[in-house]
Amino acid sequence: MTNQIVKMTVNGEKKEILAEPRELLIYVLREKLGLSGAHVGCETSHCGACTVEIDGKSVKSCTMFAVQAEGAKITTIEGLGTPDNLHVLQENFKEHHGLQCGYCTPGMITRAHRLLQENPNPTEEDVRFGISGNICRCTGYQNIVKSILSAAAELNAAKEAAQ
């Protein structure tokens, strides 16, 4: 099949890649752009391991073609925080043992990041509902929820201090 050029902004950098029309975004991210943080868990949109952020929405990149991302702004786990300056969510997942095998973690944190943009003051119920598209097989979610609520409190405190 003929390859097409796809232009998109990924983690703030302009990217131009060649992709077959049937190529899924997750594989382009993982294999053509070397961003292997998002994972493939089901290829049917159920598990959320492939979650990235596209134009301000959480998207399961295993069920979107790369060519559909033409012109999109994409944020992946690699775009949140740096080794020397982790994102508050990354810090809190470490602090509250919000991960075990790590396979769901990039998708989970990326989803949580979006959730806190949409709702900076979530209740526990909001968090549980908000991440219900992301499956974790290891943690039982309790510490993930704790991590997200704690990150929200920290972000809000920082915002308040800045005002």
Binding site: L35, V40, I77, G81, L86, Q90, K94, G102, T105
Partner: peptide, 20 residues
């Protein structure tokens, strides 16, 4: 706190499908 978490939270885990 877990030493594994630095790589997992930053998307730097190294699983079989990451091997190319």
């Amino acid at each position: 706190k877990r030493v594994e978490d630095a790589r997992f939270t930053q998307g730097k885990g190294h699983y079989v499908d990451d091997i190319n």
